[in-house]
Amino acid sequence: MTAPAPPASDASSPPDRPAVRDGTGPERVPRLWHELRAVHALVHRDLLRLAAQPVHTGLMLVQPMLYLFILGGGLAALIPNSSLGGGYQTYLFPGVLMMTVQTPAIMVGIRLITDRQSGYVRELLMAPVRRPILLLGTCAGGTLVATVQGAVLLALVGAIGLPYDPLLLLTLLVGMMLTSFTLTALALTLAVTLDRPEVFNMLLGLVMMPLLLLSGGFFPVGNLPGWAHTLAAANPLAYGVDVLRRCIAARVPDRAAPTTVEWSGWQPPVLLEGTLLLTVGILALLWAAHRFGRPE
């Protein structure tokens, strides 16, 4: 990952900042460039950790595969293909992708809390970087790791009868990146407000199951009573699943399945759903960065 070229001048930095540069090295670079290096450092850390724990990474991928092949394979025999557009496994796929990116995204939140307890966050805060930048880097790292894990699952599209269409894979990848970003940002929002991992875990245990069930990833929410629709319309996971589902529908129209989100009978277009997801992610991240950036 290479960062974009630094701006030509440092005029954007506050005027009270002296022109004095550190004597630490021969380089003299603008602040923004320094901060991009810090973001890169945090992303790099996440990738190194991913590579350092191959077993852990592998195990995180096992669960979605179990769902896809055992639950999906089992239920596929019960559910007639016609009711869901394609086969049940095709229907389940967006939900499984969601589960895949959701686990590492949540891990980012847990790790922020444990890092804070272990003192690692304090080490990060010592870096001569604005604090919100550190949270931005953490979010970028989490998003990338989640997307990488989701990308592994994309290799399975053939196994559930979808074509290895480059455009399909690309749109699914973009959809997962978007979803990963929003989920990571939400996990970080939660993490900066809680100081104990147990509370974080408890809260997730309480909230994640209903969110997943009402995301439309496992079954169409349309058959549930009205309150479930309302909940689904407020469920970020439902938007993520919808976006992924529509990526499939766009390339493989005969496998199109019903979407989940409905605003009083109206289905928002995919771009609007994606934009909403992105907006929620950005707002969550900004709030978390603000909260994280408060000086002691």
Binding site: V29, A38, L48, Y120, R122
Partner: peptide, 20 residues
Amino acid sequence: ALDSDLTAEQNLHIHARLYG
């Protein structure tokens, strides 16, 4: 605190990058 899953060198490298 150090990142115990990473090597000594990796820990230092990441920290150096954090310092720009």
